[in-house]
Simulated scan of single mutants.
Amino acid sequence: MSLRPPLAFIPAETGTIPASVSRMAGDQDSEAVWINQAGGTTYRIGAGTATDRYLKYAPRGTADPDFAAEALRLRWASEHARVPEVIQVGSDESGSWLLTAALPGESAVSGTWMKRPELAARALGAGLRKLHESLPVQDCPFEWSVGERLRAFEQRIAAGEGPENWSGDCVHLGIGEARELLSNPPLPLDLVVCHGDACAPNTLLDGHGNFYAHVDLGELGVADRWADLAVAAWSTAWNYGSGYEDHVYAGYGIEPDATRIGYYRMLWDLS
């Protein structure tokens, strides 16, 4: 499938700090470290201090993230895997937020690992395997199923979106053809607890380039493991350039499955 642009990026400068962010930062420094396409911003507060933490903030009127649902997923996953500790979830008249404690790992898209993409891509796969093996699928109360994601596709169609709004290899599809393809996932399903957004920016590495932790688990839930794998490998092309996807599969310890990769990338794009 074709490449697609990343949906989030590191800002060149912090810009104006919202009042609610400044209030939570108090007398500590805060800086914007990540901006997503929907208008949300992640701030780092108190970098290098004992109270180093991250605040995901969504202004009122932007896409409405369910930070309470993400907090539930983080708290559940924290019993089995290394993920950020939830400090606070809240909202006011200006927006909503999720405050978590910082972890000592470094993002796989930091300057350090952008220079060593093979190592980072392999760690991305190894970390995803560890997550899938650590989270108990039988006990997971959350889902990220095809059926649930197809409802999101239908919501996009109902809102007036169509092929002209789609990207990559999906632009040539009609709505009916896309619906038919999405309604027939490859079987049998190989169910695990998926991250839901297992891209390179959401993977933290230690100082040696080994997997350390995952962040941003707002979509965590039971799904076919390829729903994570296909997009995790794809994200290396968005962040590092072409040629690194096989390192993700090698790190995970699995051979690429072209059928499942194609299906779950299409599902990602259209839902």
Rank of each mutant, 00 (worst) to 15 (best):
Q155H: 13
R156C: 05
I157Y: 01
E154T: 07
R129H: 12
V171L: 09
L135V: 07
A126L: 04
G162K: 02
A126K: 00
L135Q: 03
E161P: 05
T112E: 10
A126G: 06
E164L: 09
G90I: 09
C140L: 12
G111K: 01
S91Y: 04
E133D: 15
R116H: 13
I175K: 07
W166N: 01
T112Y: 02
L128C: 08
T100A: 06
E133I: 05
R116C: 11
A108D: 11
S145R: 00
G105N: 12
D92K: 09
L128Q: 03
E148R: 12
A121G: 08
A152H: 04
K115R: 14
L128M: 10
W97R: 05
P163N: 06
E164C: 06
L119S: 00
C140I: 07
S91N: 14
L135E: 01
E118V: 14
A121Q: 01
I157D: 03
A123D: 08
L128K: 00
D169N: 10
M114N: 11
V109T: 08
I175G: 03
W113S: 02
V171D: 01
T100D: 03
P117N: 02
G160V: 09
P163A: 10
G105L: 08
G125H: 04
E164Y: 03
S107K: 00
A152N: 01
S167Q: 03
D139G: 11
L99T: 11
W97N: 03
I175Y: 09
K115V: 08
G95E: 01
S167Y: 07
G176N: 08
L150M: 13
E154K: 10
W144A: 07
V109I: 15
N165R: 02
A120V: 08
S145E: 03
R116Q: 14
K115F: 09
D92Y: 08
H172L: 04
D169L: 11
L150T: 01
R151L: 13
Q88S: 14
W144Y: 14
W166Y: 10
G125S: 02
E143F: 04
E177L: 12
P104S: 14
G127V: 04
N165G: 00
P163Q: 02
A108N: 04
K115Y: 09
E93L: 14
H172W: 12
Q138C: 12
R116V: 12
A159S: 11
A101R: 14
H172A: 13
R156L: 11
P141V: 13
S107C: 06
E177A: 14
P136N: 03
S91M: 13
M114L: 15
W97C: 11
A102G: 15
D139R: 05
L173G: 00
W166R: 00
L131R: 00
P104M: 13
V109Y: 01
W144C: 09
G176W: 06
E118P: 03
G105R: 05
Q155D: 15
S145T: 13
D92H: 14
